[in-house]
C-alpha cells in the first residue's frame, strides 16, 4: 500500500485509510474496433474487478467481520453499488467534467452519450459536483464508503442490533473526526449524512443502466457482477 496515511487520532478512520484499496487500472478490451463498445466492455471488466476488491475491503471495515455471514451478504448485496459509485465519484473529484473510472479510463459527456451511458453520466456528475463543492477529504470519502455499506437498508437482517452497532461505530468515528478538524465546521457531519439520499438515488440509476446494458445483450457481464445486479432487482 503506497497511500500516504494521515494520522488524525481516530482509530476507525485510520483503519479505513489503511485498508482503502489502491485504484485499479482498466484493461482495454481489444476484441472490437467499435470505440463505444470497447469503452463499455472495458468498464464492465473494471467494475467486476472493483467488486472483487470491494468484498475484500469490506472485511477490513472495523465491525464488519463481527457480523454474521448472512448479514455481511445482505449489506453487500444492497450497498455494493453505492460503494462503487463513491469510488468513481471520489476519483473524479477535481477532474472537471470527466468521469474517472480509472486513471486510464476517463469518459466525458460525449463519450458516455455515445456508449449509452448518458443517464449514468448525469447522475454521477450531480453527485460529483456536490462533493466537489463540499471539498470532501479522503477521511470523509472512506468513512462515507463504509457508511453507505452499513446503512444500505438491507432487508431480512439476522441481527439488526449488530448492524446498528456497526453503523453507530462509523457514525461516532465521523463525528469525532469532524470535531477534531480546525476550524470546526458546524454541522459538517450532518451535511455529509444528508448527501446519502443522493448517493442512493445515483446508485439506483447506475443499477438501472447496467440492467439495461445486460438486457440489450451487447455487453457480456462477469458472473459476480451479474450476481450482484440480480440481488438489486
Amino acid at each position: 500500500d503506497t497511500h500516504p496515511i494521515k494520522t488524525n487520532g481516530n482509530k476507525v478512520i485510520s483503519q479505513l485509510l489503511l485498508t482503502e484499496p489502491a485504484p485499479l487500472c482498466a484493461t482495454p478490451d481489444n476484441s472490437t474496433n467499435d470505440d463505444n463498445l470497447k469503452a463499455l466492455l472495458t468498464l464492465c471488466d473494471l467494475l467486476n474487478r472493483e467488486l472483487l476488491v470491494m468484498i475484500g475491503w469490506a472485511k477490513h471495515i472495523p465491525g464488519f467481520s463481527a457480523l454474521s455471514l448472512v448479514d455481511q451478504m445482505a449489506l453487500l448485496q444492497s450497498g455494493w453499488m453505492e460503494t462503487l459509485v463513491l469510488s468513481v465519484v471520489s476519483q473524479s473529484l477535481g477532474y472537471g467534467e470527466e468521469l474517472v473510472f480509472a486513471g486510464n479510463l476517463r469518459l466525458d459527456q460525449a463519450q458516455c452519450r455515445a456508449s449509452g451511458l448518458s443517464d449514468l453520466y448525469t447522475a454521477l456528475r450531480q453527485l460529483t459536483t456536490k462533493y466537489q463543492q463540499m471539498n470532501l477529504s479522503q477521511e470523509e470519502v472512506v468513512t462515507l464508503k463504509a457508511m453507505a455499506l452499513a446503512n444500505s437498508d438491507a432487508e431480512n437482517l439476522e441481527n439488526a442490533e449488530a448492524v446498528q452497532r456497526f453503523q453507530d461505530g462509523l457514525h461516532e468515528a465521523l463525528q469525532e473526526y469532524e470535531i477534531s478538524q480546525q476550524p470546526v465546521e458546524l454541522h459538517r457531519a450532518g451535511k455529509l449524512l444528508m448527501t446519502l439520499p443522493l448517493l442512493r438515488q445515483t446508485a439506483n440509476r447506475a443499477v438501472d443502466t447496467f440492467c439495461r446494458l445486460h438486457l440489450e445483450g451487447r455487453v457480456p457481464m462477469h458472473k459476480l457482477f451479474l450476481e450482484m445486479l440480480d440481488a438489486k432487482i
Binding site: Q77, K223, L224, E227
Partner: peptide, 20 residues
C-alpha cells in the same frame, strides 16, 4: 444463498479472492 454463491464463497474465504 445458492443464488449468490460467488459472494458467499468470497466472504467465507479468508484469503484474497481469486475467482472472477
Amino acid at each position: 444463498k445458492e443464488k449468490h454463491k460467488i459472494l458467499h464463497r468470497l466472504l467465507q474465504n479468508s484469503t484474497s479472492p481469486v475467482e472472477l
